[in-house]
Amino acid sequence: MEPFTIYEQQMQRKLTRWGIRLQKEPNLLERASKSIQNRINQVIPDKIHTTITATVKGIVQTTLFGITYMPKTDPLRGVSMADRDAKAEELLSLYKKIAAAEGAGTGAGGILLGLADFPILIGIKLKFLFELAHVYGYSTHDYRERLFILYVFQLAFSSAKKKPELLHTIKNWPAISQTFPPAADVMKQVNWLQLQQEYRDTIDFRKMLQLIPGIGAVVGAWANFGLLEELGVAGMNCYRMRNLQDKAAELADK
């Protein structure tokens, strides 16, 4: 196998900088924002928390056990990282447009459709991540790959305090993934309430604006477009990291 290309070396440096940013302590604004969000959570009725948690849990169960998001194409093999990145950028561009159109439609429909956007948007994001996995050569037929997608999802939308722990898991995925029990038992290890709160808190402000009459359509498109962009950056970097780790392991074996 050929040594790392110039492009791959550039990506290694980019990933190092990205990892450092993720592990920084929350700044004053982030801490203040989190404090406000915690207060909001305390006044939201438990019934709403339960409903949202059940929604997230149902979608995640579909991710792990269903075929709803499974790509019809096989994972790409024998493709350079530069080519994978180019295909990933095309994929992200498409899904940002899909998410923006969906956000504009539900945002224009008022509060009820705005709330309906919550599960729809998660589905769009997960479908994107499934296809992204195949772009970088990983088959989502393996439940561990589907579980990896959930960690990427959490990394993109978790608090600054939580990101270092998630990044550690992703960096050490080859070893950690071998310790997982059967898929059915993995479900018991997920903190559903924490997952939905982290996700909701990250998108809270943007998505609440979507419910405001008169500006909902514009805000809905803007919010969903931005959220897919954030997910795209996290997803591409996580899969780049794995590609480079896989290559390093293969080079070490020779």
Rank of each mutant, 00 (worst) to 15 (best):
L167S: 09
L115S: 00
M208F: 04
G107N: 10
L211H: 00
T51Q: 13
L166R: 06
F128H: 08
F148H: 14
M81Q: 10
S35I: 05
E198V: 11
R17S: 15
L132C: 07
G216Y: 00
W173K: 01
G58C: 00
S159N: 13
I52L: 13
G107S: 12
D201A: 07
L193Y: 10
L126H: 02
E229F: 11
I40P: 02
Y138I: 08
A249D: 14
K171G: 07
A32N: 13
W18F: 14
W18T: 02
Q37A: 13
A99R: 00
K171C: 07
D204T: 06
D117P: 00
K161D: 13
D85V: 12
L126D: 01
M187W: 10
T179N: 07
I6Y: 02
F130W: 04
P75Q: 05
K14F: 05
A99C: 01
Q12R: 15
Q210L: 10
V135N: 00
A82Y: 14
L126G: 02
Y136L: 01
L227Y: 06
I124F: 06
I215R: 08
L126Y: 04
V79T: 12
H168I: 01
A183T: 08
K161R: 15
R240T: 03
I215T: 08
A221K: 05
K57H: 06
I44Y: 03
F153L: 07
D74V: 11
L76T: 08
V56G: 12
G137Q: 09
K97I: 12
S158D: 06
R21C: 06
E250A: 15
E198Q: 01
M236N: 05
P119K: 11
F128D: 09
Y151P: 00
K96C: 06
K57M: 06
I20H: 05
Q196F: 08
A175S: 11
F153Y: 13
R39S: 11
T62G: 06
I40V: 15
Y143W: 12
G216R: 02
P3N: 02
G220W: 14
T106H: 08
Y239C: 04
T140Y: 04
R13L: 15
Q10R: 09
Q9D: 09
S158E: 07
M81L: 13
K72G: 14
E250K: 15
L92N: 14
G19S: 14
N38L: 14
E230Q: 05
L251T: 11
P164D: 06
V43T: 15
A54L: 00
Q10M: 14
E230W: 00
I98F: 06
R206N: 12
K163M: 08
I52W: 05
T55M: 07
S33H: 15
A32Y: 06
S177G: 10
V233L: 12
I212M: 10
K207M: 15
L227C: 08
G214E: 13
G137D: 07
E131A: 03
L121W: 04
I48K: 13
V218N: 10
G58L: 01
L147Y: 01
A108C: 01
K125S: 01
Q154H: 05
K97D: 12
I52P: 03
I6A: 15
L211A: 08
R21P: 00
G78L: 02
P164N: 03
Q245R: 08
G105I: 08
I44C: 04
I170R: 07
K162M: 11
L29G: 03
G114V: 01
F225Y: 15
P45I: 07
